[in-house]
């Protein structure tokens, strides 16, 4: 017997989660596909479901005194796109997610909780060291999105914890984003790439790279990034950077693409990004 819980406060939700193993259901745009059987039939949930969209206190976008932006768990993409508090890079990425109709339902917290390697919003979150605040009956803990997602559909989440909010930092970098899919709207990413950088006096003072859909989780490696930070632009050797990433990018073949194509495109996007940093016009 599946139970469906519809709390209207976070406190109530935490109590339910403490006593029941639940799917946490926000916008539902992934869960409703995963659990769909056939028209006219109920979604096929195999354990209890906690619907959270009625928890109004989790619907917010707020800036704190340090300039960090807090996005509540039930805040939908369309609300994030429309907010003046949200850094441009997040809007750029979100505008290419699914379709306007789906963005009127889907949440950012849901994209994190779904932990798909093809989750587009994860790239800017991970590149910019965004954090999630997890809430449980025992209190709160804060964890980086990069550490929270462990692999395909795997999270560092205890059964009684819920994503309460996402904390993102103000934008300080220049960005290069490309999403590769079969068509413009409604496409699930084959490969995605987000690079961030900051140049001061021909020196690379910040350098970050994230790849999506090419491994069990978004690929970001701070060790490689640190090798190039504070280098003069003329000393950045494109082939050497590509060499550092070539073994970190380990795509698979599935119904959307194959591993050879994904690897090739990922490396080409990295090259294009590096050329842009170095000031070369790309073709």
């Amino acid at each position: 017997m599946i139970h469906y819980f519809v709390p209207s406060s976070l406190k109530e939700a935490l109590k339910i989660l403490n006593e029941n193993d639940c799917y946490i259901f926000a916008g539902g745009t992934d869960l409703m596909v995963q659990k769909h059987l056939s028209s006219g039939l109920l979604p096929n949930f195999d354990k209890d479901v906690l619907f959270i969209m009625k928890i109004n206190e989790l619907n917010y976008i707020e800036k704190d005194n340090e300039g960090n932006i807090h996005i509540g768990a039930t805040t939908r993409y369309n609300e994030i796109e429309a907010s003046s508090l949200i850094p441009e890079i997040y809007k750029t990425v979100i505008k290419e997610i699914a379709s306007p109709n789906i963005r009127n339902m889907a949440t950012l917290a849901g994209n994190i909780g779904n932990a798909s390697p093809a989750g587009d919003s994860l790239l800017p979150l991970i590149l910019n060291d965004a954090e999630v605040v997890l809430s449980s009956i025992d209190g709160e803990r804060i964890i980086k999105v990069q550490d929270f997602i462990l692999g395909v559909k795997k999270l560092d989440r205890k059964q009684n914890e819920i994503i309460k909010e996402i904390v993102i930092k103000p934008q300080e970098l220049d960005y290069f984003y490309r999403k590769v899919g079969s068509r413009k709207a409604e496409s699930i990413t084959k490969v995605s790439f987000l690079g961030g950088y900051k140049i001061e006096k021909n020196r690379l003072v910040d350098f970050r790279v994230a790849f999506g859909s090419v491994s069990t989780k978004v690929v970001r490696n701070q060790e490689v990034e640190n090798k190039y930070i504070n280098k003069e632009l003329k000393d950045i050797d494109i082939d050497s950077v590509v060499n550092d990433y070539t073994n970190l990018v380990t795509p698979i073949t599935d119904q959307r693409s194959n591993k050879e194509y994904r690897h090739k495109v990922a490396m080409n996007l990295l090259k294009k990004f590096l050329k842009e940093i170095k000031g070369g016009r790309d073709e």
Binding site: V6, F25, G28, T29, M32, F51, M53, K54, S99, E186
Partner: peptide
Amino acid sequence: CGEGECGACTVLVNDEPVNSCLMPIINVF
């Protein structure tokens, strides 16, 4: 399609278009 790709099931919820095939009834409460 029944999975949010085609938009044939579009309705307005609070004046915003959504795919009614992906929306559980509780979310229109």
